[in-house]
């Protein structure tokens, strides 16, 4: 199952992934139009400083698409569900009880003001796009810190040395 991983050595905490995620999940998928239309796009990814021994690195975090997933277990409506290994929210069925927010050990679910849970959905509207363009955050990452693929492939990337920018 393909998922998104962050190489802490490459992440500069520029926030491009957060913005790209928010725009991808806005109705117009365009930053300026979304803002002009009065919509404040909400991202489902967050860059955080990660204490690492004596230094501080950065990590871009979102849903890990756990299996089994505590949020799916906790959901009282069945809105939070697994679909081919991806954890998705059916927004029509979500009632905003926040049991999933209570359950998620990674803090990767946002309780929105509209009383629906928001989380990484692996960009369903980009299905069919190839390479880095498949996911908005991966495409936007200028240092290629974000990687889409199997964890074994990501591990191979981590074994390579990083070329300093």
């Amino acid at each position: 199952m393909e998922r998104i991983f962050c190489d802490l050595r490459r992440c500069l905490a520029c926030g491009a992934c957060e913005l790209a995620c928010a725009v991808e999940h806005s109705s117009s998928k365009d930053l300026f139009r979304a803002v002009l239309e009065g919509e404040a796009p909400v991202g489902r990814r967050e860059v955080q400083a990660a204490p690492f021994g004596s230094v501080s690195l950065n990590i871009s975090l979102a849903c890990h698409h756990c299996d089994p997933a505590p949020c799916v277990d906790a959901c009282i409506t069945g809105a939070m569900h697994h679909e081919d290994g991806v954890v998705l929210v059916d927004q029509e069925r979500c009632v905003g009880c926040w049991m999933c927010v209570m359950a998620c050990p990674f803090g990767a679910i946002t309780p929105s003001k509209l009383k629906v849970a928001l989380k990484c959905d692996l960009c369903p509207d980009r299905e069919g796009k190839a390479g880095r363009a498949r996911y908005a955050c991966v495409e936007a990452c200028p240092t290629e810190a974000l990687f889409a693929g199997e964890f074994v492939e990501f591990k191979r990337l981590l074994e390579e040395e990083v070329v300093p920018y």
Partner: peptide, 10 residues
């Protein structure tokens, strides 16, 4: 403010 509830719960 409940955003970190799951993290603290874990």
């Amino acid at each position: 403010e409940i955003e970190n509830a799951g993290l603290i719960r874990s």
